[in-house]
Computed example of a mutant assay.
Amino acid sequence: MPELPEVEVCRQGIEPHVLNQNVADVIVRNKQMRWPVSEDIAEIRGLKILAVERRAKYLLLKTEKGTLLLHLGMSGTIRVIDANLAVKKHDHFDLLLASGKALRLNDPRRFGAILWLKDDVNAHPLFQSLGPEPLTDEFPTGYLYEKSRNKAVPIKTFIMNNQIVVGVGNIYANESLFQAGIRPTTPAGKVSRKRYDTLTQIIKTVLAKAITQGGTTLKDFTQSDGKPGYFAQELQVYGRGGQPCVSCKTTLKEIKQGGRATVYCPKCQAR
Rank of each mutant, 00 (worst) to 15 (best):
L85P: 00
T198F: 10
L97T: 02
I114C: 04
I211Y: 05
N174G: 05
N122Q: 14
E254Q: 15
R29H: 03
R34L: 08
G46P: 05
T198Q: 12
L144I: 11
P228G: 15
L47E: 10
V80Y: 03
V87W: 05
R193D: 07
I182S: 06
Y145A: 15
G169W: 13
P16K: 06
T77S: 13
T250M: 14
Q201L: 15
S129E: 09
L105M: 14
G239H: 05
A56H: 05
T77I: 14
Q213N: 13
T186D: 02
R195C: 02
L218N: 08
T222Y: 08
T63Y: 01
G181S: 14
E15Q: 15
K190A: 15
T262F: 03
D91E: 04
A188Y: 04
A152Q: 11
F158G: 02
G259D: 11
N161M: 04
T222N: 09
R183P: 01
T200C: 07
M160C: 03
D82I: 04
V153P: 00
F158I: 09
Y172T: 03
W35D: 03
A83C: 10
N161S: 07
L115M: 09
R55H: 03
W116S: 06
K31S: 11
M1E: 07
K101A: 09
K256A: 12
R271T: 09
L218K: 11
N174F: 14
S192G: 13
P184T: 11
L97G: 02
K219A: 10
I255A: 11
G100N: 04
T205W: 13
L207W: 09
P187G: 13
V191D: 04
V80S: 10
P5H: 06
C245Q: 04
D119K: 11
K118A: 03
K194N: 09
Y196N: 10
V7S: 05
N170P: 00
D137Q: 14
V168F: 03
Q223K: 13
K204Q: 15
V26I: 15
A42E: 10
K253T: 15
R54E: 02
L50S: 07
I114A: 05
A86C: 07
Q128D: 03
N20T: 02
D91S: 00
H90A: 07
K219G: 01
G259K: 04
V7R: 09
R104A: 06
T216I: 08
H71Q: 09
M1N: 08
K204C: 11
D91F: 00
